[in-house]
Simulated scan of single mutants.
Amino acid sequence: MGLFKRANRSGGAGRDLDQAELGTLLLQGEDMIDQLAGAHRSWGLGSADRWGLDQTTGVITWTFLDRTATAPAQILGSFSPSAGSWLWAWANESILPHMSKDARGVRDWAEAHGHAALTQPEVEADENAAATLVALAVRISKAKGFYRGPGADSVAIITFGPVTLTEKDGTTSTFEVDLD
């Protein structure tokens, strides 16, 4: 109740509400990441022989010995451990505009809700700060799948939709997670 009383005062009350809102979203995002990871491990996420993302088609592909998995994808951003920074996809010139819709959605949400920290193109970030940004973005974008795409100098954070599994014999099935 003290939080609501402070909301009527001038000064830092709005900031307290902002922090509470972000704290709630962060916890929800962390929970979503855990649930998504557990669900998607059932078809093999994290154990593929290789993966690739075609920005032109917007499709991510994971290749296994006995099957492939494909899904429509978006790029949220990238974390560079060596530079200690997070770069949102919408601010990255190497990412095609249609591949950063989820990232732009996070930025638009942050602008509408007064969370300026989530609207900066690039921010200093260690691994914990990057994980916080990812959890918030996964929650705000209501992602149905989430992948950390390892790269030479950075880690791409990719959201994805329904997964189509194609077996060697050509049979297909679809895997989708609905956390709503």
Rank of each mutant, 00 (worst) to 15 (best):
D54M: 09
Q55A: 08
T56A: 15
T56E: 15
T56V: 11
T57C: 04
G58W: 03
G58T: 03
V59G: 08
V59C: 01
I60H: 00
T61I: 11
W62D: 02
T63W: 08
T63G: 03
T63S: 10
T63A: 13
F64V: 10
F64T: 06
L65M: 04
D66Q: 07
D66E: 10
R67A: 12
R67N: 00
R67M: 06
T68E: 10
T68Q: 08
T68L: 08
T68D: 03
A69Y: 01
P72L: 08
P72C: 02
A73L: 07
Q74Y: 04
Q74H: 01
I75C: 05
I75P: 02
I75Y: 02
G77E: 08
G77Y: 09
S78Y: 02
S82T: 11
S82G: 06
A83P: 07
A83D: 14
A83I: 05
S85E: 13
W86R: 06
L87N: 10
L87I: 12
W88N: 13
A89N: 07
W90R: 10
N92G: 02
N92Y: 03
E93N: 11
S94T: 07
I95M: 07
I95D: 05
I95P: 03
L96E: 14
L96Y: 08
L96M: 08
P97S: 06
P97W: 01
M99T: 01
S100D: 08
S100F: 09
K101F: 13
K101S: 13
K101W: 11
K101E: 15
D102I: 06
D102S: 12
R104P: 09
R104N: 12
G105H: 14
V106K: 09
D108Q: 10
W109D: 00
W109G: 03
W109V: 00
A110S: 03
A110H: 02
A110I: 01
E111M: 07
A112V: 05
G114K: 06
G114R: 00
H115N: 12
H115I: 10
A116H: 15
A116K: 15
T119L: 00
T119P: 00
Q120S: 12
P121L: 05
E122T: 14
E124H: 14
A125R: 07
D126P: 04
N128P: 01
A129R: 15
A129L: 13
A130W: 07
A130G: 08
T132F: 05
T132V: 13
T132P: 02
T132I: 14
L133K: 04
L133G: 00
V134Y: 02
V134A: 14
V134L: 14
V134Q: 11
L136I: 09
L136H: 12
A137R: 09
A137M: 09
A137E: 02
V138I: 10
V138P: 07
V138D: 01
R139T: 12
R139D: 14
I140M: 05
I140K: 00
S141D: 06
K142N: 13
K142D: 15
A143M: 06
K144Y: 10
R148V: 11
P150G: 14
P150M: 12
A152N: 09
A152L: 08
A152I: 09
A152V: 06
D153L: 10
S154V: 13
A156E: 15
I157P: 01
I157S: 02
T159R: 04
F160S: 01
